[in-house]
Design a protein around this nucleic acid. Structure first.
Lengths: 332, 332
DNA sequence: CTACGATCGGACATCGTTGTCAAATATATC
DNA sequence: GATATATTTGACAACGATGTCCGATCGTAG
């Protein structure tokens, strides 16, 4: 900047004024400065600026996702980028990979870079470690799951209600022998999905003690094995609800191996590409990652802009998409 | 930092020494400082540090992808994050969305944040705009496509060779009436894929002038319509090569509509989830995004560490994965 | 007890920018 | 032409850290 000032023959503060579009600069001077700046290929150093600027805004935020390679996370990432990019805010994205320690490490790395806010998918048992920062007014929004140990905004899917809708849908097609396939029980959303599913079955007057619940499935293979076992036992279920994508895939494989794809009903939580190209198409409870991301970004911006409302959890409704597998009826 | 120094009763430089693990501090002093730092919940400000530090490293890099929500980009993103995260480097990820103007804008935003390097998927007609920075020693690695107008490292898939392999594979199964479905011709990789495919057909002694080439397909629907048209015309092709994921999906839909999924061979460029669950499974030329990302990150780190070799383009080989659709033979 | 090297600690300038404030210049008013 | 006022402009300190360099302290040998 001093070089630009020297070349233009003005003071550095004047350069600063031109670059930042502050008023009080004559057109002639402005032109001189801009020309010098172009000539030197000058680039403002935002970091140095935010050091001095009121509020110390760095125009960057940290985003912590299960994994940037996960399509669901990718959609969220994209929606957040779009909403924040419009304000000139850049996003540090990081993956936590089911590792609670990484969660804290990455948050520390973000804080060291003086981000203006954080959007986090919590996984550690407690997020109390951010209390000091949050009470120093660091904007904070959680997505997918609510935080534990700290009060902050959160944007989540209606996990229990969505799963209840799946149960009701299957029951309305005449099923009474339902099975539940769940993710690791230390994940809050997994517990919510089970609760919603089971409670709805109870509400509909079906004894829930008979419902097979297979949990702690975290990949395709374990889900496939669980379904093979369920379906080859006595009194096999006529309908299956799988609470997560990989589990749905495992279930689909097992059904295909047994030649039961068109006889055993299946509803998966989470939509996926080509679900409609399967045979039959796979009925799902679809989440809306783009809405979750957009809402989270909007809440974060509001907080950055000084919104002082008490923290609130925003629920984004899921949606039942019928494609065939969830509409199969039980054998007569 | 001054607060920590005050609380610990030492000078601020001593605090800096402790935080940065520099030698020349007694254990007693170190302990005092650490304790004060914990008490105040102190966090080093990296931006301020890099202002003064030799080399001005900010420990952050910019990553520009077609879209963070695209699974292929997601894999690359993840591999890069892993490789750079190990060195404490954070990643700004942004999507360019087929918009050449965005490419420049986002690069400018990255530069303003004084990133230590850039990994870019080029899309604009020329990347000459980064020449000033690059010649000032800004490390730069391109992925997926080679840059135009600037000499820098690049990491790409063997697009032509992979497509040639697809052609050879189909011909070895007895096909002579092949069709090519391509993306927008202003995309370098799309042109490469066409070239590889067509040239291999010529090498195998089949007249290439008869090969229907349908290009500038950029979404599922346009690809579906193109395939419907191809297959209902006189002398329809017996094998189709689609040069990109969405186009492959469109082709699959068209084949299914016409009931030809098991009669017309199909090979797609790019692997995708559940390809093996289709009926028949979809044979693909798979790219290796995780290898591309890892290699790009390694090259960037080498450049950051001062590697001065002349720029080089690294080619990551693709792989033919047989799943059935590409092994169908032409009707006798 | 002094001299000396090794160790430890702090004062100060500096990085690139912006906020403050006052000086310089231009313009308007009488 | 003199004064008042508005507009431009720049000098300087400060943001939070680190590099440089010098001074203080300590232990030990002579």
């Amino acid at each position: 900047m001093r070089h630009v000032a020297a070349l233009a023959g003005v003071g550095i503060k004047t350069v600063s004024r031109v670059i930042n579009d502050e008023p009080g600069v004559s057109d002639a001077t402005r032109e001189k400065v801009l020309s010098a700046s172009r000539q030197l290929n000058y680039q403002l150093d935002m970091a140095a600026g935010s050091l001095r600027r009121a509020g110390r805004r760095t125009l960057s935020v940290g985003l912590l996702l299960p994994s940037v390679s996960n399509p669901f996370s990718g959609e969220i990432n994209r929606a957040i980028e779009d909403a924040l990019g419009a304000r000139g805010i850049a996003v540090f994205a990081a993956s936590l990979d089911d590792d609670p320690q990484r969660e804290q490490d990455i948050v520390a790395a973000f804080l060291g870079r003086r981000v203006d806010g954080l959007i986090l998918t919590p996984i550690a048992r407690s997020q109390a470690y951010v209390i000091p920062e949050h009470s120093r007014d660091l904007p904070l929004v959680f997505i997918d799951r609510e935080p534990v140990g700290v009060e902050a905004d959160a944007v989540v899917t209606d996990n229990a209600a969505g799963s209840a809708r799946a149960a009701a849908h299957l029951i309305s097609r005449g099923h009474t022998r339902l099975a539940y396939l769940g993710d690791r029980t230390d994940i809050q959303t997994a517990r919510e999905r089970r609760r919603g599913f089971i409670e709805e079955i109870g509400r509909q007057g079906i004894p829930t003690s008979m419902i097979p619940v297979r949990e702690n499935l975290h990949d395709e293979e374990s889900a496939r094995l669980a379904v093979l076992e369920l379906l080859t036992a006595a009194e096999p279920p006529t309908a299956i609800f799988s609470s997560q994508n990989l589990i749905t895939f495992g279930a689909m494989r097992a059904l295909r191996e047994l030649g039961l794809s068109k006889r055993v009903a299946l509803i998966g939580f989470d939509d996926f590409t080509l679900a409609d190209m399967m045979d039959p198409g796979v009925t799902v409870i679809a989440q809306h990652p783009e809405r979750i991301g957009k809402l989270a970004a909007e809440r974060l911006l509001a907080r950055i802009d000084g919104d002082q409302q008490p923290p609130h959890t925003y629920v984004v409704p899921s949606e039942l998409i019928q494609r065939g597998s969830g509409e199969l009826r039980p054998p007569a």
